[in-house]
Simulated scan of single mutants.
Amino acid sequence: MTPVLTTEARAEQLSEVADATHVTPKDARELTRHFLARLAVLEEGTQEHQYARNTLIEMNISLVRYAAARFRSRGPQEMEDIVQVGVIGLIKAIDRFEVTREVEFTSFSIPYIVGEIKRFFRDTSWAVHVPRRLQEARVQLAQATEELSSRLGRAPTVAELSQLMSLSQEEVIEARVASNGYNSSSLDAAISGSEDGESVLADFIGSEDGALELVEDFHALAPLIHDLDERDRLILHLRFVEERTQAEIGERLGISQMHVSRLLNRLLGRLREGLATTG
């Protein structure tokens, strides 16, 4: 019979695995909780802290790819570049996550990942203006990528580039994103091979799906609603799930309709403020 390993035992095994991205999704969820707990007590800057942080990043790349998939048709950028931008959001989520809140890391991290990708698309001015720091990093990145690709016989990882360039992984990702600033196309550019011979790029750019935006809002709201007390969550459930009137809610809770109205306004204000802070 194959022995069942504890979370700690699997975590010890993981230290011998060259690529943490090969961990199964089920184990990744369990090990993520374990490494987040370790990260909370380790001293920042130590080798153990860096190992735990890097392992969390590698194990949760699938979350970034999941969030990035919805942006596949948003423009000429390569999907891998979008994923690299999403990794910045993942890193921010890891650094800001609080184990004591008892919120699922998936629900907590998705808004950060999507937010970084959205900011990337908003920063289209990079096609005409790139900070000098990133211009220099872009040249260094190209040289390091060529050197490592020749040496390893494959495309280098962000961690390998970071070590060779003596930069943080966040800075390497920024340099990769900055490279897109030198590749832009006009929306009026003709598309070769089109049936009528007159189609332009703008003809093939679709509009945003409002339903997808709603999914993102649900993910962002989940931890905020989780932090509410039981009565506040009940009020929201009665009003927006069961669609009860304020008078019906007041009768259920033994309070006046006016009191229900004030409570709802206060609750919605807190949630709006929380969403604005997260975004």
Rank of each mutant, 00 (worst) to 15 (best):
D227S: 15
E170D: 13
Q135A: 04
V64Q: 10
Q77T: 13
S192Q: 12
N60K: 08
S109I: 01
E242N: 14
T7F: 06
A67Y: 10
D203C: 02
N183L: 09
T124V: 03
T32G: 09
G274S: 13
R33V: 15
A93H: 10
L148R: 10
D217I: 05
H219C: 02
A137N: 01
V114D: 04
H237S: 15
D19V: 11
P131W: 06
L5K: 14
G254P: 04
P25E: 08
E170P: 03
I173F: 05
D123I: 00
L221A: 07
E198Y: 11
V4N: 08
A202K: 14
R101T: 08
H49W: 12
E170C: 03
N265P: 01
V85D: 05
H237T: 12
T106Q: 03
R231W: 09
H219I: 02
L236S: 10
A11D: 12
R138N: 07
V114A: 04
V200F: 07
D19E: 11
R29A: 08
I249H: 00
T2H: 05
H259I: 08
L228D: 03
A178Y: 02
T157N: 04
V114F: 00
R53W: 06
D203A: 05
T245V: 08
V158G: 01
V41M: 03
E198V: 08
S199N: 09
T157K: 10
L264A: 11
R151F: 06
I88P: 12
H22M: 13
S73P: 00
V85C: 00
V87Q: 04
L221G: 00
A276R: 14
V215C: 11
S162F: 05
N60P: 13
T157M: 05
H219F: 02
R70M: 11
A93C: 10
Q84S: 15
S179E: 11
V114H: 00
A220W: 04
R244C: 07
A144W: 08
R10Y: 07
V83M: 03
A37E: 15
M79G: 08
G269M: 13
D217W: 06
R10S: 04
D188S: 14
G279S: 14
Q47S: 11
L42Q: 09
V85I: 11
G115T: 06
M79A: 13
S150V: 04
D123R: 01
R138S: 12
S149G: 10
V260F: 07
V4S: 07
Y112S: 06
T245I: 04
L5E: 01
M258V: 12
E98G: 05
